[in-house]
Design a protein around this nucleic acid. Structure first.
Length: 491
RNA sequence: CGGGGUGUGGCGCAGUUGGUAGCGCGCUACGUUCGGGACGUAGAGGCCGGAAGUUCGAGUCUUCUCACCCCGACCA
């Protein structure tokens, strides 16, 4: 079947890379650490964007755009924020090139040094709070609910397509509120939007929770997150929502006059998801035959492949296919009729399987005779015949069924790979031999979390919301603990 | 920044004791095919990562350099 294709069992990361390349999602560019997102991969991102954007609008947010460059001085205003990002910032120091006097092409003009260096945004809190300062005077100016779709740069040492690249695409929401309660509510609302998106659209079950101090965003009071479990048993952070308190308001002196005519610092949140979600999508659903896409996000939901010998047959099938295309399109289903004569049907079957198209319809001479078509679903690889009269309705239902099946499968996988550990040996044994989510007691100190990470590479992914209280002893130190937290090795 | 590796047609690779570059895939044309990646025939395509050196002669040997990949420390 699939040729030159690494299986998950053989080498998981090779399998991942193969999928990204062979499904034509993205490739490495000649710029170190940066990827080219190819049309098919970008189409998935566009579908995600469209959906998320609608969800942001529905919750009262508006899009805006802020500069890609941030003056260095802005960056140093919030101490833990700088600390979080300083090590991975790209910096612009000059604004002009000139011809190399030695004839070696162009060189940076040393006379064109910037007065103040500019940071290429790794995230936009600082430039946005510098801007919000001018937008806010009174409680009547609040809340501000902005989102921006943008690229950001984090100079990573080691990169992997979609999962970690030097430049990536994301959205970042930045909101300003009059009260602590309102900002907290916003933080909570947005992590729920992300969880909803992950589960309903990406068909990925997630655990929602709060980050431990070690894993918290630089400059945040609290970071909420959604965590997903990949097929190799590693966790992947799929989205974050931060309660920033008044940290940035204080750093940028953003105050408003409340109804009692008193000056108060503004309360803030920020939240984001990135193209990394495409990595999550791949590693949650795909199999050894290639990409598997949930119908809701698939650029092509249905592909129709004709099988023919003569031109006459080809024409007859095309007529049949065209009416099918019209009917499916009328239902809002994205369908492709691949009538390319330079590729054979077998080649197309493999190609669309590799690309994760949820439903394939094959129509050949025999089918014409019997007034039916062969339907193949990508998630289960099942094939069967359906009469033409029932086809449209069948496909519509099938797409919904596949979406649901993928979610159920992923949920089942997560449940089967979620464990409890009560002793250190048990904990390490699980991580090494049955990788997945491990619920274990922790004494609540950053030092212990750090030590656990050093010892076995596992980190606290989150402390789930509504976490059941349970008395126990810390897995490492034996100190008392009143709840289990979620551990895993993570991407 | 440590430790390991690789640079040769678009991609994946071979190239012996130094003798002037080959294979598979892909690509082009034509023909035969067409219900799970077809086959035949004929083609196109390469200053062998770069620089210097040894030599009558370097893909091959020496030195230097550059780039990329893998494993660590950092991270969404």
């Amino acid at each position: 079947m699939a040729k030159n294709f690494c299986t998950r069992a053989e080498n998981y990361s090779q399998w991942y890379n193969d999928i990204v390349k062979k499904a034509d999602l993205a490739e490495n560019s000649s710029v170190r650490g940066c990827m080219v997102i190819k049309p098919y991969g970008y189409a998935i991102w566009e579908k995600m964007q469209r959906q998320l954007d609608q969800m942001f609008k529905d919750t009262g947010h508006s899009n805006a755009y802020f500069p890609i460059f941030i003056p260095k001085s802005f960056f140093s205003r919030e101490a833990s924020h700088v600390e979080g990002f300083a090590k991975e910032c790209a910096v612009v120091t000059h604004y002009r090139l000139k011809n190399d006097p030695n004839g070696g092409g162009v060189v940076v003009d040393p006379d064109a040094k910037l007065e103040e260096e500019l940071i290429v945004r790794p995230t936009s809190e600082t430039i946005i709070w510098d801007t919000y300062k001018n937008w806010i005077q009174s409680y009547r100016d609040l809340p501000i609910l902005c989102n921006q779709w943008a690229n950001v740069v984090r100079w990573e040492m080691r990169t992997r397509l979609f999962l970690r690249t030097a430049e990536f695409l994301w959205q970042e929401g930045h909101t300003a509120h009059a009260t602590r309660e309102e900002a907290l509510e916003e933080t909570d609302k947005m992590i729920h939007v992300y969880a909803d998106f992950a589960e309903k659209h990406m068909a990925i079950p997630v655990v929602m929770g709060v980050k431990s101090p070690n894993e918290r965003f630089g400059g945040a009071i609290d970071t909420y997150c959604i965590e997903a479990l990949m097929q190799d048993g590693k966790a992947l952070q799929a989205g974050t929502s931060h309660f920033l308190g008044q940290n940035f308001a204080k750093a940028f002196d953003v105050k408003f006059l409340n109804q009692q005519n008193e000056q108060e610092y503004v309360w803030a949140t920020s939240w984001g998801v990135s193209t990394r979600l495409i990595g999550a999508l791949i590693m949650t659903h795909s199999d050894d035959n290639g990409l598997v896409l949930p119908p809701v996000l698939a650029p092509i939901q249905v592909v129709i492949v004709p099988i023919y010998k003569s031109d006459e047959q080809r024409q007859q099938i095309a007529d049949k296919a065209d009416t099918l295309v019209q009917k499916l399109k009328a239902l809002g289903i994205s369908v492709k009729f691949d009538n390319d004569d330079t590729k054979r049907s077998g080649w197309k079957f493999n190609e669309y399987e590799l690309k994760g198209v949820p439903v394939r319809v094959a129509i050949g001479p025999k089918d014409l005779e019997n007034n039916e078509a062969e339907v193949a679903r990508r998630d289960t690889m099942e094939k069967y015949n359906v009469s033409f009269d029932a086809l449209v309705e069948h496909i519509q239902k099938l797409l919904e069924e596949i979406q649901q099946n993928l979610y159920n499968k992923a949920l089942k996988f997560r449940e089967e790979h979620t464990y409890k550990a009560d002793t250190w040996d048990e904990f390490v044994d699980l991580l090494d031999n049955k990788p997945g989510f491990v619920y274990a007691h922790w004494d609540g100190t950053p030092e212990t979390e750090e030590k656990i990470k050093d010892l076995c590479k596992a980190t606290i992914r989150c402390i789930p919301f509504n976490n059941p209280k349970e008395e126990g002893k810390c897995i490492l130190t034996g100190k008392p603990s009143h709840e289990r937290v979620l551990f895993a090795r993570a991407y």
